[in-house]
């Protein structure tokens, strides 16, 4: 492609249809609304975490049987790990300066997406562990208290839900890998 051809291409590019400029007050309002939703989500997640931790502490203080206490402890640790990792990634993303050189920011984005891949992998493994421990917990309960069809149905629905979430994590993980590939091009 010689300079003349490129100049033609450049003027063709610059003559593309001009879209109307958005009303900035509306864009700023929408951004504020999204910011509020983000903060609200964070508060809900923190409240859920506090509730689970509170449940763990009161269960331990009330001398709940060992198997149930182990189960609640596992859920608490699982939730705390996922929350910390997700929050760290969110914070890293927010801290990033938009005015830095592109080559620098691409490296940061690669790091962020690698963190995300790590997080999805961790979610997949943690959910499998969750299912495994949940099944073991229920087998122990059946062994102790006998078999109940109603309970079994509820547990089956719960496990199906967890399997769907694993499927969702796998898809997100695959997409994150595709994005990493794009950034590495």
């Amino acid at each position: 492609m010689d300079n003349n051809e490129f100049e033609q291409l450049s003027s063709l590019w610059q003559s593309t249809d001009k879209k109307p400029m958005p009303k900035m007050d509306k864009v700023l309002k929408r951004h504020k609304r999204q910011d509020v939703i983000l903060r609200l989500n964070l508060c809900i997640e923190m409240l859920a975490l506090i509730a689970v931790s509170y449940l763990l502490i009161t269960s331990a203080l009330n001398g709940l049987e060992f198997i149930k206490l182990t189960w609640i402890s596992f859920v608490t640790v699982w939730a705390v790990i996922i929350f910390i990792l997700a929050s760290r990634s969110r914070l890293d993303s927010l801290k990033q300066l938009k005015s830095q050189e592109i080559s620098t920011s691409i490296e940061i984005h690669k790091k962020l997406i690698k963190n995300e891949i790590y997080r999805w992998n961790l979610n997949i493994k943690a959910t499998w562990a969750f299912i495994l421990i949940f099944i073991m917990f229920n087998i122990t309960l059946i062994y102790q208290n006998g078999f109940e069809l109603n309970n079994l149905l509820i547990e089956a629905v719960l496990i199906a839900g967890l399997l769907i979430s694993i499927f969702f994590f796998v898809i997100k993980n695959k997409k994150a890998k595709e994005i990493l590939h794009t950034l590495e091009q």
């Binding site: 993303s93 990033q96 938009k98 005015s99 830095q100 050189e101 592109i102 920011s105 691409i106 984005h109 962020l112 997406i113 997409k175 994150a176 595709e178 994005i179 794009t182 950034l183």
Partner: peptide, 20 residues
């Protein structure tokens, strides 16, 4: 330069959040 950096950084952020 400053504005082009901001524009292209936002695009990279967009790529990271919306896979094709």
């Amino acid at each position: 330069t400053y504005i082009y950096r901001v524009i292209h950084n936002t695009a990279i952020d967009h790529i990271r959040r919306h896979s094709k």
